[in-house]
Design a protein around this nucleic acid. Structure first.
Lengths: 234, 234
DNA sequence: CCAAAAGTGTTTGAGCTACACCCATGG
DNA sequence: CCATGGGTGTAGCTCAAACACTTTTGG
């Protein structure tokens, strides 16, 4: 490691791939991604991932959270770094290296969201976005793959649901992210066998059919088990 | 994404955690890591991971490969980015963000290696290194964890072995990386069942006991199967 | 009473685990 | 002929996959 202070430096940014699951419409069974419309060149008017420059004395996670807040109004969402993109040609202006994160947003509580200050932000089906700026299509695809992997190995899917949820909601979440259908009985058996879901003794309301039980994820217990070597799987 | 060209930028580096398996001494059943001794402050004389600044118009992988070559003489090794470390305090001089990679070196062929130009480089047991500079202990620990994960899910362990190897060598490799012993019969059954090892019809030489069969990993077949949805596991 | 989703068990087969002895080779 | 690692099979068990009907509720 040289002391090459004199060398020009690549710029450093963070980008966020914000995922959400359609709340109200049970028909919108697609993974959603939040994009913003650029108002400056390059790629003026194109849709892009929220993101921006990392400031001095700011950690990467802080930078990602800050940019997300500034550009979309979202805060306190689950954020996880997954890859750093450094192709010198990825930004036409100059060499810009971007640390990409994925974010998981609970659309049931954050309701409409786009009503914040983000007039230029909108949700799209993750597999049917418009043409994206820079290499953001690559970043998006890569984020989805990593999310699929992550959601099988760690209980982070719950970040996309309200605190209390039904097993069907949970199953649909997995189906949407993994892009495959799952067997209802086997899914429930497996999840309940982990004993990480707390039966709240409460029921779904406002549905025109038999109301489902509501569960909560037991974070505390998970952390305890994890330390004892337990490994969440699918 | 603002056009904040005027803002000061964090510096950007790559660091490499170079892993190898002891070749000759069958007793040195420890995962090895390659460190270099710093000859400049800060942390002068401390041991550190090889690495250095990313240059303009150089990709991250290129930068990692270049630094590795410059500082250790190694080239054509397997390199994989695994995490980016950006704590503003991780370098006492200023804000330096580092894209960390792990590298896998075949010590059977690269023999003594340290004989290149790297007078200040040496191998250590990965779990018994001296105190390291910066946050390099954290990076090393993190790299090992990611390697354990990676080696179970993708056939990259072969990068640590010569082109032709015995099943015992392969098993010991997994045992050293995963830090646990494996059942000989079950291990062989599983690996051979994948049908990704080619029996070279040749035998180990120069050993004072029954000579073991030599195998090669069938990369071509693996790539074919992979495209068809096959997933390497353990 | 009808529509819609919730909830529930069993059978089958694949694959993992545990386990011990004979074989080939060089010295 | 001895020491050293190479090489092999099986039984039991666990767990994943496949699969269909009854229950509850609101409208």
């Amino acid at each position: 490691m040289n002391t090459s202070y004199q060398y020009p430096r690549p710029a450093l940014t963070v980008d966020c791939v914000v995922f959400g699951i359609g709340a109200s419409d049970a028909a919108t069974r697609k993974l959603q991604v939040l994009l913003i419309q650029r108002d400056l060149p390059p790629f003026k008017n194109a849709w892009a991932l929220p993101g921006g420059f990392v400031r001095i004395n700011e950690s990467l996670d802080q930078a990602a959270a800050r940019e997300l807040r500034e550009e979309t109004g979202l805060s306190k969402v689950y954020l996880e770094q997954f890859h750093t993109f450094g192709d010198p040609q990825r930004d036409p202006r100059e060499h810009v290296v971007s640390v990409a994160h994925f974010a998981l947003v609970n659309l049931f509580d954050h309701k409409v969201l786009a009503a914040t200050d983000a007039r230029d932000a909108d949700w799209f089906d993750a597999d049917q976005t418009p043409k994206l700026a820079f290499d953001h299509q690559l970043i998006l695809t890569s984020a989805w793959q990593r999310l699929q992997q992550a959601v099988r190995q760690r209980p982070i899917g719950f970040e996309l649901l309200p605190r209390e949820f039904t097993l069907t909601q949970l199953q649909q979440l997995y189906e949407v992210i993994l892009n495959q259908s799952l067997d209802k009985r086997n899914f429930r058996k497996k999840l309940l066998a982990m004993e990480l879901l707390i039966d709240t003794q409460r029921k779904q309301t406002g549905v025109a059919h038999r109301a489902a039980k509501l569960y909560r994820f037991d974070r505390t217990k998970y952390q305890r088990l994890q330390k004892a070597g337990f490994h969440f799987e699918l």
